[in-house]
């Protein structure tokens, strides 16, 4: 099913030779008159784990929405395996999305279905597999994330970490080539976090899935990612192995990686002069 889709859409270019799966070239994007990206360039290597980092509000989620074709850039192009994502028609875009899997921060499980039905959802929607085969696939995927025993629970009965693991199993059900994780570690206890880190690594190592991890957890990522991009000010501020970036000359990169409270990202939100405002208010 997936292979039929890829020959269909990617006929424009024989893509197998290329090193990188996703290419972002000179992307500009603005929303509500505010510029989020101004000339963003980066490439996601095939079969590796790439980290996208940066301060909150810098546009990491927006970048993922651009890559998955939910929004279109005002300028520049986004190539997925040689296919320009932003020029696709809806049907072609849906075909392309079957090669991607995306994990949302809160899991985004369908709340009116059990864990089992959630994982079965993409299979039921896209295939005519017999029930027994669906059952086998679902149980295999749940076993891989350690939640086969939770198959009959409803999403509301799961903890935050379990929610994300079920979402991962659901994403894996259709065997995507790329997995995109949006802040997978946020709000998790250390044990759940360790489980997710292990799963991200496993999916990449055992199945060769290209992985994109958005996070600002410098510590977890330094052991996980092959390459990292730090995005700030609408551009890539630094790129490379995370350990080597620690001594980066750019101030913003330094502030981010070392967690300094003040720097290019100021401690104070822009405001009028403090003294003047106090005096003015007391009058």
């Amino acid at each position: 099913m997936v292979s039929a889709v890829s020959t269909d859409v990617s006929s424009a270019q024989p893509a197998a030779a290329s090193e990188s799966l996703i290419e972002i070239r000179d992307v500009h994007y603005s929303v509500g008159g505010r510029s989020i990206f101004s000339g963003l360039n980066l490439s996601i290597p095939r079969g590796r784990i790439t980290a996208l980092m940066g301060p909150s509000g810098t546009g990491k989620t927006t970048l993922l929405r651009l890559v998955t074709g939910q929004i279109k850039p005002t300028r520049g192009e986004i190539l997925f395996d040689g296919i320009n994502v932003s020029t696709l028609k809806t049907r072609e875009l849906y075909a392309l999305r079957r090669r991607m899997g995306m994990l949302f921060q809160n899991g985004a499980l369908l709340t009116d279905m059990s864990v089992f039905e959630n994982v079965a959802f993409p299979l039921r929607e896209h295939t005519d597999l017999p029930e027994c085969l669906i059952r086998n696939i679902v149980l295999t995927k749940l076993q891989a994330v350690g939640l086969r025993g939770a198959a009959q629970l409803m999403p509301a009965e799961l903890s935050g970490g379990m929610n994300r693991r079920v979402a991962l199993a659901r994403t894996m059900a259709t065997d995507p080539e790329v997995l995109i994780y949006d802040e997978p570690f946020t709000g998790l206890d250390p044990i759940s976090m360790g489980m997710i880190v292990r799963l991200v690594r496993h999916m990449n190592a055992a199945l060769g899935i290209t992985s994109i991890v958005v996070s600002h957890d410098v510590h977890e990522l330094s052991g996980l990612s092959d390459t990292s991009y730090i995005i700030a000010g609408g551009k890539v501020a630094a790129a490379g192995k995370l350990n080597e970036l620690k001594g980066h000359q750019s101030e913003i990169v330094n502030q981010f990686l070392n967690g300094l409270p003040d720097g290019p990202v100021p401690f104070h939100y822009p405001a009028a002069d403090y003294q003047q405002q106090l005096l003015a208010d007391s009058e």
Partner: peptide, 21 residues
């Protein structure tokens, strides 16, 4: 409220990302 909540909790986007309208 059911649909609104599905929107607010990314369920509708997740369905779109699974290539389902």
């Amino acid at each position: 409220s059911e649909l609104g909540l599905m929107r607010a909790t990314d369920q509708l986007t997740a369905i779109e990302m699974m290539a389902v309208d």
